[in-house]
Amino acid sequence: MTDTLPEADSLARVVLHSEVQQFYARHMQLLDAGRADEWALTFTEDGVFAPEHRPEPVTGRAALTAAVSGAYAALVEKGEVRRHWHGMLDVTQNDDGTVGVRCYALIVGTPLGGEARVVMSCVCEDLLVREDGELKVKHRRVTKDGVAAPV
């Protein structure tokens, strides 16, 4: 199949895709390390995390920090390590400058002395914006496999 986009457009897509992958690598490693304050800074001040399997979305950096801090402390007490993996990224540059990303996400849990297991498989849909030249999550929607109808 031949790409009909001009070479500059094709290169811009590759660069954006690489930038988004690097964003998620840092973003998820901060989360998995329990660095809640730094992780929350990867969202806009009014950023929204809306997993469908939770009753209410988490909105704003302070609430995001509190939620991650609490969840991480519970995992430490339980003796479990969690790793988040985002893959199969479909990245779209929108006309308004925002970036849409739809990807698959796996959460792997490993109890101390135990075997790794997939805790959750889901679809993550993000709207990313640029603030001071950096990508930030404006809105995240997570659909957990097995809860809603397949998409």
Rank of each mutant, 00 (worst) to 15 (best):
T4D: 11
T4P: 01
T4V: 15
T4A: 13
L5G: 06
P6Q: 10
A8H: 05
D9Y: 04
S10F: 08
L11W: 06
A12W: 03
V14P: 00
V14E: 14
L16E: 07
V20P: 00
M28L: 12
M28K: 02
Q29H: 09
Q29D: 15
D32V: 02
A33D: 09
G34P: 02
R35I: 05
R35N: 08
R35G: 06
D37H: 04
E38C: 01
E38Q: 00
W39H: 03
L41T: 15
T42Q: 06
T42W: 01
F43T: 11
F43M: 08
E45M: 01
E45I: 01
E45Q: 03
D46T: 14
G47A: 01
A50D: 14
A50P: 02
P51L: 08
P51I: 08
P51K: 05
P51R: 04
E52N: 09
H53V: 10
R54Y: 09
R54S: 11
P55F: 03
V58H: 00
V58F: 00
G60P: 07
R61C: 03
R61D: 05
A62S: 14
A62T: 15
T65D: 02
A66S: 13
V68M: 07
V68E: 04
S69H: 13
G70R: 03
Y72G: 09
A73W: 05
L75C: 09
L75T: 10
L75F: 03
E77V: 09
E80Q: 13
V81W: 10
R82F: 14
W85A: 10
W85C: 06
H86N: 13
H86L: 11
G87E: 06
M88P: 08
M88G: 14
M88K: 09
D90Q: 12
D90R: 12
V91R: 01
V91G: 04
V91L: 00
Q93I: 04
D96F: 02
V99M: 00
R102A: 06
C103E: 12
C103K: 08
Y104D: 12
A105I: 11
A105Y: 06
L106A: 14
V108R: 02
P111F: 03
L112E: 15
L112G: 14
G114S: 06
M120N: 09
S121T: 15
S121D: 15
C122D: 13
C122E: 13
C124G: 08
L127A: 13
V129D: 02
R130G: 12
E131H: 04
E131P: 07
G133V: 12
G133S: 14
K136H: 08
V137N: 02
V137Q: 07
K138I: 05
H139W: 05
H139L: 14
V147Y: 00
A148V: 08
V151L: 11
